[in-house]
């Protein structure tokens, strides 16, 4: 399992109602159900992924995140998860507000663009390609890259309170200069 997903499973309280945005084939939701008895729904736009969710016996809703979370009532989830999807969202602010409208807390993970290898590649005049940023610039689904520092700025601006942070590199926690040495960041946040 992807290291950020392992962290997320750990953070979700037993029996919590979860919403996994950009849930892929439903792997995380399956783990949450089996390990944390947390029932949930996934949101996914890609046909093949949605069918994979159905095959994995995961509840999935094929809607576009960009139009917000209008299917979901206020406060209907304990935890809303956005794992490695933030960087693909056009209307980032809208979605973050929506996540905290429908859920008591949100868990967000994203590749850290501030990692030294990305900085070095930019310094050398190239768009970064790495394990956490595997795409060439012309084929990437990512539209909004950010760094650990950038994300925390946005949280401040939106009045989002960061409850926990885990920055990883190659699956291991990074505590020294995380914005420089971490390639993957995971946050647990609440409103205000």
């Amino acid at each position: 399992m992807r290291p950020d997903l392992a962290a997320i499973v750990h953070w979700v309280p037993r029996g919590a109602r979860v919403l996994d945005l950009g849930c892929g084939d439903g792997t995380l939701l399956r783990s949450l159900w089996h390990e944390r008895e947390a029932p949930g729904y996934g949101v996914e736009i890609d046909d093949d992924s949605v069918i994979a969710c159905v095959a994995n016996d995961v509840n999935v809703l094929q809607v576009d995140l960009e139009s917000g979370l209008s299917l979901f009532a206020d406060g209907s989830f304990d935890c809303v998860i956005l794992s490695e999807t933030l960087q693909t969202i056009h209307r980032t602010e809208l979605l973050m507000r929506e996540m905290l409208r429908v859920g008591r807390e949100m868990i967000v993970s994203f590749p850290n663009f501030g990692h030294w290898s990305a900085r070095l590649q930019v310094l050398l005049g190239r768009m970064p390609v790495s394990e956490t940023l595997p795409y060439e610039w012309y084929e990437t689904p990512n539209v909004h890259h950010c760094t650990v520092a950038d994300f925390e700025d946005l949280c401040r601006r939106l009045g989002v309170r960061i409850r926990e942070r885990l920055v990883l590199h190659e699956g291991k926690p990074v505590t020294l200069l995380p914005n420089l040495f971490g390639s993957l960041a995971v946050y647990r946040c609440t409103a205000g």
């Binding site: 729904y41 046909d47 949605v50 969710c53 159905v54 509840n59 999935v60 809703l61 094929q62 809607v63």
Partner: peptide, 8 residues
């Protein structure tokens, strides 16, 4: 319990 598909 619900799944929803919106097929193109």
């Amino acid at each position: 319990i619900v799944s929803y598909l919106e097929l193109d």
